[in-house]
Amino acid sequence: MTWAVVVAVAMAVLLAGKLWFGFQPLATGGSRPYATSSTDAWEVNSFLLDDRAFLVKNESGATLTLRQQINNTSSRSIRIIDPEPALADWRRSHGPCLWQPVRAHFTAVRTGTPARTVPFTLNPGESIMLELIGRIGRPGCDAHMTGGHVGTKIDIPLRFSVFGIPRTQSIPLGLTIWESDEPERALGPDIRKLDADS
């Protein structure tokens, strides 16, 4: 094998690796995330928090559920696979007082349609609705939270496969979930109370 062939093969491998690791087919679509909560929670616009934030009363065991349309923006069909390993990584890497995603469900974008079971194929240009259910903190976090706020920026980790090779992609929502024992202290005029979890 000549040096020219070796260099060509090496360049092809590098290019393929760059394309593979840079392959980000999933993106948010439709409207901004819609959320419901089993405890007192508000959507707030405040320079003290973030441009887009949910402020949630720290009530251990309570839930905050996010719903977001996800699109396949690539020209290739992909397989959406079990999200649990990515959600487990999230729970390990974020503090126990923070919002912790525990379950993900997928449905068609139209409301009232049945859930889709992973794995399933998402074709180019096709969309799904993701429902991500998370718990607020855990018992024992209250002392850490008293009088303050803790927050986490939400980048949804979803898993997909192409050619049978699994990948995880984090999809930023431009959203932070803040938790407080006394959320009323941070509430201003530009707020909207979230609907209750059903």
Rank of each mutant, 00 (worst) to 15 (best):
G61H: 06
A62S: 06
S31G: 12
A53N: 07
E59T: 10
K57T: 00
D40I: 04
E43Y: 06
D50V: 02
F54R: 00
E84R: 13
G30L: 05
L64A: 01
R32S: 01
F23Y: 14
D40F: 00
S77K: 14
S60V: 10
N45M: 00
V56T: 10
E43W: 03
E59I: 03
L26V: 06
Q69W: 12
N45W: 05
G22F: 02
R67E: 15
T39Q: 02
V44A: 13
I78L: 15
F23W: 08
A35Q: 02
A53V: 08
S77P: 13
R52W: 09
T65I: 12
N45Q: 10
N71T: 11
G29N: 07
S75P: 12
V56F: 11
V56L: 13
I70H: 10
G29L: 05
G30S: 04
N72E: 13
S37M: 01
D40H: 02
A27S: 06
G29W: 08
Y34K: 07
A41W: 01
T36G: 01
P25Y: 11
V44N: 11
G61K: 02
E59N: 09
S31Y: 05
T63Y: 09
S74L: 04
T73Y: 05
D50Q: 13
T73V: 15
Q24V: 06
D51K: 09
D40V: 04
W20A: 05
T73D: 14
T36M: 03
P83K: 08
W42K: 02
P85D: 10
S31Q: 14
K57I: 00
E59A: 07
T39H: 03
R67I: 06
P83F: 11
D40T: 03
A27T: 11
A27V: 06
F23Q: 07
F23P: 03
Y34G: 00
G29Q: 06
L55G: 10
L66T: 08
P83Y: 08
T73I: 15
I70Q: 12
Y34T: 04
S46W: 10
G22H: 04
R79Q: 15
F23H: 11
S77I: 09
I81M: 12
T36A: 01
T36F: 01
S77G: 13
F47H: 15
S77W: 10
T36I: 03
W20C: 02
G29E: 13
S77H: 11
T65H: 07
Q68S: 04
V44S: 12
F23N: 05
I78E: 15
V44H: 07
N71D: 14
Q24S: 08
W20V: 06
R67P: 06
F54E: 02
A41L: 01
S60G: 14
Q69H: 09
R79A: 14
I80G: 12
S60H: 09
Q68P: 06
F47A: 14
I81N: 13
L49H: 07
G61R: 06
L49F: 13
T73F: 09
L66G: 09
P83N: 06
